[in-house]
Design a protein around this nucleic acid. Structure first.
Lengths: 331, 331
DNA sequence: TTTTCAACAACAAACGTTTGTGCAATCGTT
DNA sequence: AACGATTGCACAAACGTTTGTTGTTGAAAA
């Protein structure tokens, strides 16, 4: 069954294709009567525009690319909902790619974005991306890029994150304010910007409060760098009365071990940086620094749309976080 | 900076555009020397094909649409990874839409897919979708549809799910095999096919083992239909020694209440249907019927690609589940 | 009546590719 | 040497839209 195109409608109504096109897009040159005739016929013969033809002719694409390093279940869903909430009303469609944390793959994807003539790129960079060099092809092609969540700071590209350092600082402070002195910090891949910043906030808070700490109080947990046995050993040996987690993902990784060793909820206070879902799925509920993945996605998408509409200002937006004090921190 | 197209390359090499096109796609008509000249130039002037032009001319799109009802954090990520693992090597790109559980939105999206001339559709239907009528426009346009996870059975469309009934049956059986008699079943929206099937497996297992049960032993928990207070009241009043959860999402919702009431881990055995991540984030670890979101996504994507390549057979694939016996069920 | 000017619609080109066809040069065969 | 077959490329059309330009009306202004 051949689909009806503009030409078909034109023949049916004895009009020129250009008239159909303009009628459907409410061009002032076309009389109201003709417009309604055309629109009626378009519905009747269920005409659907061929977007490839349209975008080809218009030299754009109606596409926004989303490039993700992986599918982190604790954050990406929220992020995507935030992005989607903006994009859905913008007339753009979302085309999605996964870099699998490979910089090579990321470069390929960027080429692919160019081939698709996407009009904007939202990217959370891979773990192995340490500069923005490969974004310049996009910049040069006039395609705005907005980094979100996992970002590389650059004066040339907009980024949206939370204020990692402040978040970590405030989380740590909450523990200290409740008289915790032996705080274990659990962090992810130390090469990542996000880890560095949160670590900085953690350390700064400790030293601001004149709390001594050694590097032994910090555990880096990423990929399979440290398995649960090693972790368990570590938790057994280290004396601590509180744990700060830089993400809920990390908390969930360690949580079973804490239970197993009977460290939680009795003996250990806990604070995590979280998007606010996980804390309520545990009892007692976890005090956390709430950051909204939804907000990040939404804000990044909005910034991207602004740039796509010609606003050229580069921004580094930091989404605010708030302390949510629940039962996992006690006196 | 204008991007180089085939015509530009043609001028540069004093060749005809058609020759460039064929050279790049290794057409036998072109001599090896010309091919290498062309390819070298293509790289040098970083030629990238304009996919809109190509797909427009070829009357296809290189796009596979993924339509999701919402962003369930316990399942969708796995699902997408599975889909992506297949698609990434297929030359297709993935364009993604969210129906927000609205049938109207779902219809709009399907129209949009037609406009995009997508070559295949993967869809997990919305909660308010009760038939496949709106898929026929795709079928009529020759666009294969594969439903996954949340599906509507239909002789006309392929679907990929787990064998919900068997999974629920086996999960329940595991409790019974460990001498549990008072089993509380926790289920989602009873209007959904998936709920009906899992419920059927649950009930069948109970009656097969001559265990009496009333509807009071079944709790439906969805959206905000039942809030935590009501749930808590219910759990307090109902006597039970085991709980069967039809999904890990539901388990995580109820988990804090179980902890609060001191029902878990001591007094209550637990089994859930799960994709296998959550059970290890709890201690003691949760016995579960493991179903792989990844497998479902992968299988569905493979089925879709087969259909896109002309295999016309409609299938109802059921991904196998396995019992993973951990510590949450005791004697 | 003639001129002017809207209002409306037709015409035609263009977007970058792919692909069916045509054609010259070369090759192999007798 | 003459012929057909093959090789390697050029030519041109086409895909469905949009859009700049041109043309035709009919009515208002002169």
């Amino acid at each position: 069954m051949k689909r009806t195109g503009i030409k078909d409608l034109a023949k049916l109504l004895s009009l020129n294709p250009s008239t159909i096109s303009r009628a459907l897009s409410d061009h002032p040159d076309i009389s109201p009567e003709t417009k309604s005739r055309v629109k009626k016929a378009a519905i009747e013969f269920n005409y659907l525009p061929n977007l490839h033809a349209r975008y080809f002719r218009q030299k754009n694409s109606g596409l926004i690319a989303l490039i993700l390093p992986e599918f982190n279940m604790f954050f990406i869903p929220e992020l995507m909902e935030g992005i989607n909430s903006v994009i859905v009303n913008s007339g753009y469609s979302m085309i999605i790619f996964f870099s699998d944390n490979s910089i090579e793959r990321e470069k390929e994807i960027i080429s692919h974005c160019l081939s698709w003539v996407v009009e904007g790129v939202l990217i959370s960079v891979s773990e192995n991306t340490f500069d923005c060099d490969h974004f310049y092809v996009l910049k040069n092609a006039g395609i705005p890029v907005v980094m979100l969540d996992k970002v590389i700071f650059s004066p040339e590209f907009t980024s949206v994150t939370i204020d990692d350092k402040v978040a970590a600082f405030n989380g740590t402070k909450h523990l200290i304010d409740n008289d915790k002195q032996n705080i274990l910090g659990i962090f992810g891949n130390p090469r990542l910007e996000i880890t560095k910043n949160r670590l900085a906030g953690f350390k700064e808070c400790l030293s601001n409060h004149h709390i001594l700490h050694s590097d032994y109080d910090i555990v880096y947990l990423y990929h399979d760098f440290m398995n649960t046995d090693v972790l368990e050993e570590k938790l057994r040996k280290t004396p601590f009365d509180a744990v700060f987690f830089m993400s809920d993902e990390l908390f969930m990784t360690v949580y079973p071990t804490l239970l197993k060793l009977n460290l939680f909820p009795e003996k250990t206070s806990i604070v995590a940086i979280s998007d606010g879902k996980m804390p309520y799925q545990i009892y007692p509920r976890i005090s956390h620094i709430k950051h909204s993945g939804f907000e990040i996605g939404k804000t990044a998408a909005e910034a991207l749309l602004r740039r796509m509409q010609g606003v050229s200002e580069i921004q580094h937006i930091e989404i605010e976080t708030t302390l949510v004090s629940l039962e996992s921190v006690f006196i």
